[in-house]
């Protein structure tokens, strides 16, 4: 019975991935342009990871996530104003991706959780100082590199670790965030970024995410009260993430009207996960370790 349930869930993940692939292929062949293409693209990327995890092995899936982190970080380093002598620091940041991913792959939580905030954050300033003799701007460079690494590698890495615990937990997170993003896109016509907009977005999203989390609890095996709480919590985290990253995007010169690869597209698509992924990961890990109902 359990085997059958597992097989059905695997098939379902692969089917969602295939449906998204077919849709994107269709739009590519017939050159159909629609405004939310990048939004579907990132959903496809995550389902590629989950489908790879279910169909092949988690080892392959996690390295696809590593490529996603690499792409996000590459875009970030393209946009920031870094000095030429910071190149060693940037190299260190890129090398931190496999350094973290290996710990996820081998389920070494203790090292995963400190890999970037301790070792990479200590190593990168040292590497920056090796790059040249110019002292002015060192602090800013280290801050820029470390922040990018933290947000776009470490925070996104939590989705990978969540998928290691349960692919459906990660799918629950992705779909909830996707719903919040979709509602935000649909409400984008409202001009001016105001707190009232953020609150409206939250109160529209929360009922849907609660229903979705409850509906997915069949596969996630999350108890109903935790599902409801997660349904309430995820839109809050998405709102905070979107609001905060919006400031960084503006400073980086990312214009939502001109989202091209290399000019903010990847960062813009990932911004809703940056707060949600680590918090939801720690929430689920905490309660799953202490509760028999999970």
């Amino acid at each position: 019975m359990f085997q059958m349930f597992s097989d059905i869930s695997k098939v379902l993940v692969i089917l969602i991935f295939l449906a998204l692939s077919l849709f994107l292929l269709f739009t590519k062949i017939f050159k159909i342009r629609f405004p939310y293409k990048s939004y579907i693209n990132y959903l496809w990327t995550f389902f590629l990871i989950f489908a790879a995890s279910e169909a092949t092995s988690f080892g392959i899936a996690i390295w696809i996530l590593a490529v996603l982190c690499f792409m996000a970080l590459r875009e970030y380093f393209t946009l920031v104003d870094i000095r030429l002598q910071d190149r060693w620091g940037i190299l260190g940041a890129y090398l931190s991706i496999p350094f973290m991913i290996i710990f996820i792959q081998f389920d070494y939580y203790g090292m995963f959780i400190i890999s970037i905030p301790v070792y990479a954050f200590l190593g990168i300033p040292f590497l920056v100082t090796l790059g040249g003799k110019e002292i002015k701007g060192t602090l800013l460079s280290i801050g820029i590199i470390d922040l990018g690494l933290f947000l776009l590698v470490y925070c996104i890495g939590h989705i990978g670790y969540l998928a290691l615990f349960s692919t459906w937990w990660a799918i629950m997170l992705i779909l909830n965030v996707a719903i919040c993003d979709l509602i935000a896109i649909l409400m984008r016509k409202r001009k001016n970024h105001r707190w009232s907009n953020v609150l409206t977005l939250y109160f529209v999203s929360a009922p849907i995410t609660i229903i979705l989390t409850l509906a997915l609890s069949y596969w996630t095996a999350i108890p109903w009260f935790h599902s409801v709480f997660l349904g309430i919590l995820i839109p809050v985290l998405v709102s905070i993430g979107r609001h905060t990253i919006r400031y960084i995007e503006k400073d980086l010169g990312i214009s939502r009207n001109q989202l091209l690869p290399g000019k903010g597209q990847v960062i813009d698509n990932l911004r809703s996960f940056l707060y949600a992924a680590p918090v939801i990961f720690h929430y689920l890990r905490f309660f799953s370790m202490r509760s028999d109902t999970f």
Binding site: F70, F77, T78, L84, R87, G262
Partner: peptide
């Protein structure tokens, strides 16, 4: 000019 500038030895992934 940023991904592989003059006098640098390692090309860096930058758009």
């Amino acid at each position: 000019e940023r991904s592989f500038p003059k006098k640098s030895t390692i090309p860096m992934p930058i758009w």
